[in-house]
Design a protein around this nucleic acid. Structure first.
Lengths: 219, 219
DNA sequence: GCGTAACCTTACGCATGGGTAGGTATGCTC
DNA sequence: GAGCATACCTACCCATGCGTAAGGTTACGC
């Protein structure tokens, strides 16, 4: 006989909640703990404890540690893509589309630093999750490179796919890097960071050095 | 009595080598295994085995796992900085300095994909190594931002430190991202990748979309 | 030629943490 | 209010892998 009976004699110390709710709580805790400790550093015990639940429940609902991490990846990734997609407006000029995408992205990272850390700091380097991660990154790259392609065709020109891909990679990488910069500086302003990023990305170092600046459109 | 005596009866199965040589062998193996398996996935046993030596030797020479990893980080990081610094020439125009730095960097990554993986894929996410890593990245950012500052002052202008830092971060991030892109594609050409990076960084998306291109100076 | 330091080994201790077995309360259905 | 699925628990197993103890052998100085 476990100690469960003893606790119950004073009434249940826990609340019974429907599965869907508990699952979200667990994912919240998991994202938090994974982001603090890293994939390996995070223990299932701690995740369960933070969620206010016992370990077997985590296994019952979300499976093994890898499954749990993948679930976190999916949830946070989906949220991020939605945030960005929501800012898109296909018929705007390229610079304004890029600007809106960047602003949405930095806004998301600023608001979900934990999720961001899980997605891009922890998942890297674990080749176990390479597939999941590359799928997500590919979607991002596709969005950006599609945008560039669209803008090019509007001018009657086009470029090799590899070229577009490389530029898109560079853009995504620069943005990720600044996102890290932002995530480490709680006092920094996402909007301002997005503007700076836009300047660097749109104008390039050459024009920046010549004194050119890009300003967000006055809404 | 161990089994050591038995082996010796047929002559020593190993070579006795001076410490300095063994240490380098161990570091070579460690970089290789860390890059393949990740920090946690790598076992001291495997590192020792790859080095053709037994585990206690690793502990005797290079200490605990963390120490060993830091030693890898330092060696590879130093090599990288040397490769880049060797390409620098302070009195050249900014674009050519950037170009040379980029070429050296991509050349290094192309030639030391394992070292690169250890440095930037594995070390991230382990906050244990955050200090080491941020020091190295800061040196990189400092080089880039110093270069930008130098170029600005040459035109009689200047910019706030934060501005320069952000641009430098974006540049470094974009470059790291393309380095990953490169490391995953054995058939890709470092030189070409450097040129593309230069185009994106120097000209910016805006000019690229207008059809501008940057070409490496003909040596 | 002989001691001693440097090199190198096998074999094990033991903590950590993923994963599970087995059992208890609660609420919904009929 | 009996039955059953669901939500939930405590307590444990055990593989993995870091780190070490104890000892054997070879080279080199003197």
């Amino acid at each position: 006989m476990g100690r469960y009976a003893r606790k119950v004699s004073t009434g249940p110390a826990f609340k019974r909640l429907p599965r869907a709710v508990r699952e979200q709580q667990m994912l919240d805790s998991a994202v938090q703990v994974f982001s603090r400790r890293g994939y390996h550093g995070a223990s299932m015990d701690e995740i369960a404890e933070v969620a206010g639940i016992s370990k077997p429940m985590v296994y019952a609902y979300l499976g093994h540690k890898e499954d749990l991490f993948v679930a976190c990846l999916h949830r946070e990734g989906t949220r991020m893509m939605e945030a960005i997609a929501g800012a898109a407006a296909p018929d705007l000029p390229a610079d304004e589309r890029l600007w809106r995408g960047l602003r949405a992205f930095f806004g998301f990272v600023g608001a979900h630093r934990d999720g961001w850390a899980v997605l891009y700091r922890q998942a890297r380097g674990e080749q176990r999750f390479a597939r999941e991660l590359s799928v997500m990154r590919a979607r991002l790259v596709e969005v950006v490179s599609g945008m560039l392609d669209h803008a090019l065709r509007a001018e009657g020109r086009e470029a090799a796919e590899t070229e577009l891909e490389v530029v898109a990679y560079a853009l995504v990488g620069a943005t990720e890097s600044l996102a890290d910069w932002l995530a480490d500086r709680p006092e920094a302003d996402p909007e301002k960071t997005a503007t700076r990023m836009m300047n660097a990305a749109w104008l390039g170092a050459g024009q920046l050095l010549s004194g050119a600046t890009w300003h967000p459109p006055t809404v």
